[in-house]
Design a protein around this nucleic acid. Sequence first.
DNA 1: TAGGCCATCTGGTCCT
DNA 2: AGGACCAGATGGCCTA
Length: 379
Amino acid sequence: MMFGSWHLGKWISKCGMIVRIVTACSPPPALAHWPVCSPPTPRSRDNSTVLPRELVSDPPIKTRRDPGGGDYPVTTATDLTEDRPTPAPPVTGRQHSPLVTRTGRRMDSDASLGSSRASSPEGDSIFMSHARGRGGFAGAVSSSTQSDSPPGAAGSDLSAELRSAMAMAAAAVSGAGGDQLAAFKAAAAAAHAQAKKDRRPLSEPELQQLRLKINSRERKRMHDLNIAMDGLREVMPYAHGPSVRKLSKIATLLLARNYILMLSSSLEEMKRLVSEIYGGGGSQHHHPGFHPACGSALAHSAAAALPTSATHHPILPPPGPLRPPHGLLKSPPTPLGGGAFQHWTGMPCPCSMCQGPPPSHLSGMGNTGLVPRLTGDSK
DNA sequence: TAGGCCATCTGGTCCT
DNA sequence: AGGACCAGATGGCCTA
């Protein structure tokens, strides 16, 4: 089944917003364990909450790509200080055409030849190219397996000073220890501050350090984002387990949105049922717990009773092999507007257990059909 | 082998 | 000014 009329492009454009929403929201009681929603912490500029410390400090996420050692192999200082081949054209032979960024700026990514994947988690396995035109420099981050020297051959014979700086930087970061990283960052900041104080342009090592610092920050940012994504995966009503391939990012976001929509519709339905039960003809205001001003309180009470991801829907297959959300199913292709998605979008579940459960079920709403369909081919 | 997914680098922009 | 955020680009890994 597919996501109905959801269009992937729109989804992608909204992904960032969704992440912010799920990150910044206060969790409904049913999701009170939502990690990213726990203790509010100082905010960043966009009013979203900062990730809890425990999340940020978690070890790097191990992915299917590197189940053994994590995704961020550390390159030692040796990798940085070892002699490089004499200037030569990129060994990879890969010819990059001039690239233009979204801002129309030319991006000479030849300087980035080599696998960025081989970078260390906190510090790059750094072998930066010399500054190129415009006074800028394009960082060439190479791995220990990269045999080529940075392009821009003239700059590949790094000075001893630069090598030393790179070695120091690598040594500082290769341990991935907080102290060492902090020391490295402090050194970079100090170098920058000193340059400012002296009113002189940054030297190459300083530029390199600054670039490394920026790169490290960006990596950390992306790691935090991935941690948040994992937290989102954990609370998604989906099969988890080491043998299960984890949801892709886009699939996670799509599923999360549907889940939220489903919960919202369930809440509305529950409100309606409660008003029918207690309202006597819909005058819900007679019920002390359903005064309009108190509606949200009741809503939360209802939400607290909502099934969690662990609840098994009567018409759903048990948690099994992971499948991507409907819209991301690659095979077989299904037409848009499939019935499964309609199940999510505010439409009551067609199954008998979801159709007007008796009041006695209200005390145990574990099977009110509020768990989304998890598979794309379930009928 | 093509395509999907991902991590990373990078420069620009905006905010504090 | 520094940092966060963003988007383009690149290259590696994996799977169909």
